[in-house]
Amino acid sequence: MASSMRTPLGRVRGHGAAHSGTSHFIAERVTAIALFFLAPWFALSATFAGVASYDAAVAFVRQPVNAVGLILLIAVAFTHMSIGMRVIVEDYIHKPATKTLLLLGNAFLCAALAAAAAFAVLRISLGA
């Protein structure tokens, strides 16, 4: 009796924990640590480079260090915001159909925006 807290059904099924329950929790924090550096770097360096104008923006993205930094920022930021919006949807939307649609829309939108942004950086910096 005292040797196990498991129910008889649980013991028969024999499944343990999947050991991946905290993957989103950890990913949100790892990306947060990366964004601690990447987000202010981009916001400030792009602002001071005057990237509203076409020529200044192209020159900024063409710098190899900036192109690499932008691709890192895109990969990390869109992952972070995808997880963040997922948490918001799961917290407030309880109707299964609406929730599923919003979660799908969030995942697809973040993937599409990240792909578009990364492709644009490569096209500008490689000079197509």
Partner: peptide, 13 residues
């Protein structure tokens, strides 16, 4: 803002 960043980069490209 990040969606705006992606649209801005696509316009630039």
């Amino acid at each position: 803002g990040a969606a705006g960043l992606a649209i801005w980069l696509m316009a630039l490209a």
